[in-house]
Each structure stands twice: as structure tokens, then as C-alpha cells.
Amino acid sequence: MASYFVDKKGFLAFLKGVIKKYPLYGTVERDGFPVFKKIEEPEELVLSAKPTHLSPKEFLFPPRELLLRFNLEDGKAEPVVEAREQVIMGLHPCDIHAIGLLDRVFSHGRGDVNYLERRKKTILIGTECLPDEFCFCQSLGTMDADEGFDLFFHELKRGYLVRVGTEKGRRLLKRYTKPEKAAKKHLEEVKAHREKKLKGFTRCLDARKEELPLVYAGSYEHPLWERIGSICYGCGSCNHVCPTCYCFDVRDDVTLDLKEARRYRVWDGCTLEDFAKVAGGHNFRKDRSERLRHRFNRKFRYLADRFDGLFCVGCGRCSRACLVGINITDVTNELIKDAKS
């Protein structure tokens, strides 16, 4: 994989060029935290080392996405694919791994054309980060991203080291900058940052990631589920912020002039009360403890076989967002401890 050096001037020129050609979504500082938003001016963008509270999944899997239109006057229907070209910038390695998992999900079996088209038209640009008190990606092998992005920017003292992930990324970089070959000192600066990052973690999982499916398989009747279920609000915040939660509902509505009906999908969450409730009223997961257990098992066990990878990338967002302080590392470590004893 080729690495280049781009100075700060070159970086701004790159942003300027990208903004002119594509809608660019990147991170800005708001209330002291980075958030993703549409970038209008190069100066707005702040490549933040801090994690975002919301994941970037919304740019590939929008919270509400139109699938079909029905013309109620002539009775005809047409499929809708909203995808258009875009660039997402400021993705941390965990986010890049998460997008890789969503790619597997939506290309599984009968491919999901809405997601896949959007994905094809999206350029992903990563950036380096530092852990906060919730991050634990070093335990899940998602601390580094070697693939799954088009470009990856490492901020240096005097500019950026840019790793190229795809030909599309290389073309984009070369279109707007004159990158130099990265020098040894640049690579050493990247390495030093990685050391610093590794030292910054305050949380980790007490088992290897390969052991986690078995740990969860053996913890189905663990009393912890009742305990955290009794404090869980069932609010769905964990589903909402998770970069790999992709469950959705499909709904219809009708325009006010009654001329058109629209079928669209909206994010849904397995911790919400009605998620597994069928018409007639039977709820297959009626207790919050059952629903939490389901969510945790999806992350560490259920989807692992189906898609060949754990569905937790260690971003800590669910713990960060939880209103009652349920922490995914505490939960998992308690199960690990009891599984080992």
C-alpha cells in the first residue's frame, strides 16, 4: 500500500477540490465533541481524534430511506434508489471495520440494491484517533485499518501522511494535490502515534476475541441478564449509535394530497419493546433482559458465523450513550470471568 506526504496547504487544496465535486460529510467540533455533518468550507472540517457519539452509518444506511413509490391514481409502482456520489471523511478504524461488516450484511443473499448502490458511489476517508474512557478496539483487532477505505489521513506535525487504499482513492488524491512519497520520518511519526494510542486505553476485554462467541454461548442463563434488564430503559439508544446495528422496519405512508403512497425503511432496534411482537399481540422477546441478551449475543455470537466476524468493533458508543450506564466491556468481562471460573 502506497503512502504519501501532503502538507497543510495541500490538504486544504484537497478539501477544496473534493467539496467542489462531491457532497462531503466530515467531522466538525460541536460542544467539544466531533460530529459528522455536511462540510461546506474546507476550514470547517476538523479531523478529530475523539470518537463521534453517532456512528457514520447514516450516510450509507439512512435513518429513513425511500424504497418504493406507488402512484395511487394509475395504480403503478416504481422502485427507488436514492444513491448519489459522496465522500465521508474522518472515519476512525472502528468505523471502517463496521462499514466492512455492513457491506457483508447487505450483499448477503439477495443483495440490497439501495445500500449497495450508495456504497459503490461513496468514497471513504479514514483518520487516526485516540481512545476515550469507553473505547476498547484494541481487544477486537479493529484498532488499525489496513483496508476498507479509499484514503486514510494520519495527521502529522507538519502535514499528513496519506495511505492509499484503492485506485479510486489514489486518483482523488492526485487530482487535487501533488503528494510526495512519504519519508521515513513521517512513517515514524505515525508509528509513534500508534504507540501513544495503544497506551491510552483504559478498558479492555479479558479474553481473546476468538473466545467471545463461546463465552456468550455459555452465558445464556447468566443472572447478569436479569440484573441489567431490570435497569435498562429499553430506549434503543445502544442500537441507534451502534455502527453495526442495521435492523430496520418497513413502513408505508401516503402523501397529503392522497396521490402517492411511499414505502420506506426506518431504523429499528432489537431492544425496543415491539421489535419481535407479531400482529395478534404475541411478543417473542417481551422482557428487557431478553432483548438486551439478544443484542449482546448478536454482537459477539449470532452474527459471527453468518458473516465471519464479530459485530462489535469496540467503539464504545453503546456504553457512552447508555442512560443507565450499562457498559459493554463490564458486561462482557463479567461473563468472561464466570466462564473461566
Binding site: V105, F106, H108, G109, R110, D112, Y246, C247, F248, D249, V250, R265, D268, C270, F275, A276, F284, H294, N297, R298, R301, Y302, L303, D305, R306
Partner: peptide
């Protein structure tokens, strides 16, 4: 909701 193994609603454990 989807019929194609994606929306998540019909999941029974794994």
C-alpha cells in the same frame, strides 16, 4: 419485514 435475512425481526437466536 424484508423476507431476505436482513431486517432482523424474525431472528430466533442465531
Amino acid at each position: 419485514k424484508c423476507g431476505m435475512g436482513k431486517c432482523g425481526h424474525c431472528q430466533i437466536n442465531s
